[in-house]
Measured scan of single mutants.
Amino acid sequence: GKELVLALYDYQEKSPREVTMKKGDILTLLNSTNKDWWKVEVKATANDKTYERQGFVPAAYVKKL
Rank of each mutant, 00 (worst) to 15 (best):
V42P: 06
T28K: 11
K22P: 00
T33I: 09
K22R: 11
D48G: 15
Y9P: 01
G24R: 01
A7L: 01
D25S: 06
D36L: 13
G1T: 12
K2W: 11
G55W: 03
L4W: 12
D10R: 02
W38C: 05
Y51P: 10
L65R: 03
K22T: 08
F56D: 04
Q54A: 12
G24M: 03
T33P: 04
K64D: 05
L30I: 13
V42G: 11
W37C: 05
K22E: 05
T45N: 12
T28F: 10
K23F: 05
I26D: 01
K22G: 05
A7F: 03
N34C: 10
K22W: 08
R17W: 14
A46R: 13
L6P: 00
A44G: 12
S15Y: 06
S15W: 05
V5K: 00
V57Q: 00
Y61A: 11
Y61W: 06
L6C: 10
Y11M: 00
Y51S: 10
A7T: 03
V19E: 00
V57R: 00
S15T: 12
Y9V: 10
E52H: 14
T28D: 05
K64G: 05
Y11G: 00
T20M: 04
Q12M: 11
Q54I: 14
L30M: 06
A60H: 13
Q54P: 04
L4P: 04
L30E: 02
G1E: 12
T33Q: 12
L65K: 02
L8W: 03
G1H: 14
G55M: 05
T28C: 14
F56I: 06
A60L: 09
K39H: 09
Y61V: 07
K35H: 10
V40W: 00
L29K: 00
M21P: 01
A60I: 08
Y9F: 14
P16I: 09
K49P: 09
D10Q: 03
L8P: 00
W38T: 03
N47L: 12
K39T: 07
K39Q: 11
D25Q: 13
W37Y: 06
K64H: 08
T50I: 13
D25C: 08
S32P: 05
K2T: 11
V62P: 03
P16M: 10
G55K: 01
K14Q: 13
T28H: 09
Y9S: 08
L8C: 12
A59V: 05
R17T: 11
I26C: 07
N47R: 08
V62R: 01
Y61S: 12
V5N: 00
E3N: 11
Y11V: 01
K22L: 07
K63C: 15
D36Y: 15
F56R: 02
S32C: 13
S15D: 09
M21N: 00
K63L: 11
S15N: 12
K64C: 10
V5H: 02
E52W: 15
E41K: 08
E13P: 14
K64I: 14
Q54C: 09
V19K: 02
D48S: 10
Y11L: 01
N34L: 08
V19M: 07
N31S: 14
V40Q: 00
M21Y: 01
V5G: 10
Y11E: 02
V5Q: 00
Q12Y: 14
Y51A: 11
S15P: 02
L6Q: 09
Y61G: 08
G24E: 02
L4I: 09
E3H: 12
S15M: 07
A44P: 08
L4V: 07
A7E: 00
T20A: 06
G55Q: 01
L8M: 09
G55Y: 05
Q54V: 13
R53N: 06
V62L: 15
D36K: 13
N47S: 10
W38E: 01
Y61C: 15
V62H: 02
K49N: 11
K49H: 12
K23N: 04
D48N: 13
K14F: 04
R17K: 11
K43H: 14
G24F: 04
K22F: 10
